[in-house]
Design a protein around this nucleic acid. Structure first.
Lengths: 218, 218
DNA sequence: CGTTTCCTTGACCATATGGTCAGGATGAGC
DNA sequence: GCTCATCCTGACCATATGGTCAAGGAAACG
């Protein structure tokens, strides 16, 4: 039953395939309707397999949900982790913003899944938010604070700055439908994606960099 | 008190009261679980009345949902409408940002309801998004554009600027739970609310104002 | 008081939904 | 081909859910 039986039972490529198929379909449906609003049959339909078969791979609806969540969680936080205290803030934060925009463009459903989960009170990932996420954010806030102390970026609340980056970038995936209604363009569209990325990066960098064009301190 | 009871027109204070009670409870539940994830019984429970009685006032779940949506829609767009083309951009946009933050603080559920509706593809308000909302946004985008042409704010995509304001302000209500997990503070808390408002206003204004401290051009 | 209209309720129904199960189909190794 | 483990399915079940209904209260109003 348990995957990984060390040597032999390799979870049979077919198993690997179907699990993946289910997870992909689940991401689509869960990201749209949230946990409670999602019906197993929908996932089955989207994944193109019978509900019975789907339940053969995941005993419970909640199991699928948690699996999807876990699968994208690490990758989701990666860009923030990548911010280096030793780098130049313009470069580091600029890269972070671009990475987040890239993700909004290439994985909008993941963003919406988290949005949905948070909206519903984060019942499944609350421990992650208050644990690893908080730790990571606090750590990077210190990095920002350090840059501020050195005068490399303007003095402001580092936490709020992080929230602003999250908000502006994720907005393009979470509210994609609204933006589509207003502009007729979607973040999925690569061209619009880079246009949005540039806008956000420009606005935020200008907002956080000191007014007097900071002399190169090399 | 009973001014208009003679004709068959309802009003009937008791009716007015109960409808309101239902709408309030509905906002709470719908904003959390979205349309599909919400159960009528939940609304009944939160509103403190029997499901039968609730269905006496609203025949269908969808009727309640639409009613709530409509009730808060106009008020939701009001701040954007209030932006005056004749004012100073710093004042106008600053006021807009503060108004949006205020709403995020005082009516976070309304924000979350919209967020949920958009996430689910805006099935109920798509016509509003592509109609009145788009019109309003386009109109205000022109106002911004005009300010840019006059050099009062930096040149950038006005639409993306509006999105950035929406994103940063609404983030505090939509992702309140996440912020609470990280900072231990909620946008509901008045003190934190104004702290957030200041941060956002400061960051965005600095981001959009020209670098060289714009001389008063009065 | 009686009547009328409005308000509330519990019982009821059809269907949707999450989840189980026994057994049949399929494929891999022999 | 044969065997066994894996894979898949339709039938089935218990409960949840949206929604209806008839009838029992309460309030207005003469």
């Amino acid at each position: 039953m348990n995957n990984k039986k060390t040597s032999k039972t390799k979870s049979t490529r077919i198993q690997e395939q179907n699990r993946q198929r289910i997870l992909e379909a689940s991401l689509t449906v869960f990201s749209r309707y949230g946990f409670r609003g999602t019906r197993i049959d929908q996932i089955a339909e989207v994944s193109g397999m019978s509900r019975s078969n789907l339940l053969y791979y995941f005993k419970r609806k909640e199991d699928i949900y948690r699996a999807v969540l876990n699968e994208i969680l690490a990758e989701w936080l990666e860009p923030l982790r990548a911010i280096s205290a030793d780098g130049d803030p313009r470069i580091e934060i600029g890269a972070y913003i671009r990475a987040k925009c890239k993700m909004a463009s290439s994985a909008p459903e993941a963003s919406r899944l988290f949005a949905n989960e948070i909206l519903q009170g984060a019942p499944m990932i609350n421990d992650i938010l208050t644990g690893p996420l908080k730790t990571l954010v606090d750590e990077k806030a210190k990095v920002l604070q350090n840059w501020m102390d050195k005068g490399q970026i303007r003095r402001m609340s580092p936490h709020h700055l992080i929230f602003a980056i999250w908000a502006t970038t994720q907005h393009y995936s979470d509210f994609d439908h609204q933006i589509k209604a207003i502009l007729g363009k979607s973040i999925i569209d690569e061209e619009f994606g880079s246009e949005a990325a540039q806008s956000v990066e420009d606005l935020l960098l200008h907002g956080m960099l000191p007014r007097h064009p900071e002399p190169n301190i090399d």
